[in-house]
């Protein structure tokens, strides 16, 4: 399983309705994007991290590992803010470090909000409920199918890669390229073969077109729903308080 999804299934918040968690994480995300980067984004990042680790009990290691890649992208792009291109050529931008810092702070806060939702809500709980907010059922069904097949295909890819490595398939650059081509084509062939066999199995059972599955009911609990906007209100209040400090 993927680390974020595994954390979501283990989360103590698993029993809370996805809408309530979306309200909580969405409120914080709103703060991260709309409040001034200093102190708004910094305060939002701290509040979100505290909520994720102390309240939602997402393991710190999972949070850090998941945030590494998106923040790495933001960091790679940040040197562009440090320079300016003018008629005289390239020069250091006067407000470059400030702009880079603002974007990085906003990005960190927003990524943590995204991980707070993703690390507490399995996709299997979210997808069937998307129909209620107007997403076409056919689209949701295909997305749910992709989600179900994803782990089998990922596992197949992992097994093929291990087998290739065991046969010195990554010994040289040339062998690595050949192995990658083989891996991609084998995954394609196997995933299509699996889909065809599923199709035959369903046809044998009188498949009429719709793949209805049992959606586990999750009650919308009032105390959690009332508490959901609190972190965002706290972040906004703290940001305003820090801004007014002399």
């Amino acid at each position: 399983m993927l680390a974020i999804d595994a954390a979501a299934y283990r989360s103590p918040w698993r029993r809370h309705h996805p809408a309530a968690k979306a309200l909580l994480a969405g409120g914080l995300l709103g703060c991260a994007l709309t409040l001034p980067p200093w102190p708004g984004a910094v305060v939002t990042a701290l509040v979100t991290a505290a909520v994720a680790v102390c309240w939602a009990r997402i393991p710190v290691r999972t949070l850090v590992r998941a945030a590494r890649t998106p923040l790495g992208f933001a960091l790679t792009g940040s040197p562009a803010f440090l320079i300016t291109v003018g008629a005289d050529g390239i020069a250091w931008a006067d407000d470059g470090p400030r702009r880079a810092g603002e974007v990085l702070a906003r990005c960190t806060a927003a990524v943590l909000c995204q991980l707070l939702f993703a690390g507490t809500t399995p996709l299997a709980d979210t997808l069937p409920r998307l129909v209620r907010i107007g997403v076409p059922p056919a689209l949701v069904e295909v997305a749910a199918l992709i989600y179900r097949m994803l782990f089998v295909v990922l596992d197949t890819a992992r097994r093929i890669r291990d087998a290739q490595a065991g046969r010195l398939g990554t010994r040289s650059l040339r062998a690595t390229w050949r192995s990658l081509g083989g891996l991609g084509s084998a995954v394609f062939v196997r995933s299509f073969d699996r889909a065809r066999r599923l199709e035959a199995g369903l046809a044998g059972r009188g498949h009429a077109g719709a793949l209805t599955v049992l959606v586990e009911p999750i009650p919308l609990r009032t105390p959690f729903l009332l508490a959901a906007p609190m972190p965002a209100a706290l972040a906004a209040g703290l940001a305003l308080a820090v801004e007014r400090l002399p």
């Binding site: 056919a138 069904e141 295909v142 997305a143 199918l145 992709i146 179900r148 097949m149 994803l150 089998v152 295909v153 990922l154 890819a157 650059l173 690595t176 390229w177 990658l180 891996l183 991609g184 995954v187 394609f188 995933s191 299509f192 699996r194 889909a195 065809r196 599923l198 199709e199 369903l202 046809a203 498949h207 009429a208 077109g209 793949l211």
Partner: peptide
């Protein structure tokens, strides 16, 4: 062709795995 939904599911999963492959 309702049976195509499984192939589409497989195609989507394939796209996801393809974008997760590490290339030198």
């Amino acid at each position: 062709s309702p049976e195509d939904r499984l192939l589409l599911g497989a195609s989507g999963a394939f796209c996801f795995v393809l974008s997760a492959l590490k290339i030198p």
